[in-house]
């Protein structure tokens, strides 16, 4: 797929994130917007995933460890045709398959496991990866985490194990947007240097600009050629990317969108791809 097409898809995903969050009246725009290109490249260029059969045993697995940014996942899955676009507007509503955090029991196609409590996804991914190895299968496993999430100790239990068990079929993607609820990650609890930490834990580390689709594409390609180590893609991103009044502001981690602000955001996103 051409970069221009991926950019259009990314813009559409961004618009859907904004629209569904406005309709929901609550939720997490900042981190959803920062991981758009990482998700779009993954699902539209790299992952083996059949939208018509999301439980195909030959699929690659995706675990949204930072479950609060599920709007980006829901928007991508809708874009792929896993379910009707209109269902996006049921986000966070009673009876919806689009729960406030991904919920396996609601049976939305593409949700492998319930997530939302931070620091759990990498272990889950490592378990799937170990299972694929045991079964001599080539399925890949992708886990998206936040940079603030790296403060959870359980991430490092999993990081240690993934390298120890040589899970080269496991790819951790860190959406390094630098912000968490209480402020900058550096101020709240510094997790840096993340590259050095993962390298010292025995991982293959790739540093990229997480909004540059060419760099994102190359990083996933590089992961697929890794023979021994698990891969960590540390993607520098902008929280709230694509919406001027949200960018790099911690308060937009989880803030309600008004109709006016929604229109402003949609116009900005449209203008960016013209």
């Amino acid at each position: 797929m051409k970069i221009a097409d991926l950019q259009l898809i990314s813009a559409n995903v961004r618009k859907n994130i904004i629209k569904m969050l406005e309709a929901a009246g609550s939720g997490h725009p900042g981190g959803s917007l920062s991981s758009v290109e990482l998700m779009v490249s993954l699902y539209f260029q790299h992952m083996k995933f059949n939208p018509k059969d999301a439980s195909d045993p030959d699929r690659d697995y995706f675990i949204l460890s930072k479950g609060h940014v599920c709007p980006v996942l829901y928007a991508v899955l809708a874009q792929l045709g896993c379910f009707d676009n209109d269902e996006l507007y049921t986000l966070r509503k009673e009876g919806s398959r689009l729960q406030g955090h991904p919920a396996k029991d609601k049976k939305l196609p593409g949700i492998e496991v319930s997530t939302g409590s931070l620091g759990y996804g990498l272990s889950i991914g490592a378990g799937i990866a170990a299972g694929m190895k045991q079964a001599n299968k080539n399925n890949k496993v992708y886990v998206l985490m936040g940079d603030g999430e790296q403060q959870e100790g359980s991430v490092w239990e999993a990081a240690m194990a993934a390298a120890h068990f040589k899970l080269n079929n496991l790819c951790a993607i860190i959406d390094n947007n630098g912000l968490q609820i209480d402020g900058t990650v550096n101020d709240v609890m510094n997790v840096n240097p993340l590259s050095d930490k993962y390298t010292s834990f025995g991982w293959h580390v790739i540093n990229i600009n997480g909004h540059n689709l060419d760099e994102v594409d190359k990083a996933y390609l590089e992961f697929k050629t890794e023979k021994e180590k698990p891969t960590a893609i540390i993607a520098k991103t902008v929280k709230g990317k694509g919406v001027s009044y949200m960018e790099n502001l911690a308060e937009w981690h989880g803030k309600v969108l008004s109709k006016e602000l929604m229109e402003k955001a949609l116009n900005e996103i449209d203008a960016s791809v013209k």
């Binding site: 045993p57 492998e112 759990y120 378990g127 170990a130 299972g131 694929m132 045991q134 239990e157 240690m160």
Partner: peptide, 15 residues
């Protein structure tokens, strides 16, 4: 915590 997390992953993988 990794013990249980990895077991969850193995269950997702069909074990």
């Amino acid at each position: 915590t990794n013990l249980v997390g990895m077991a969850a992953g193995l269950a997702i993988a069909g074990f």
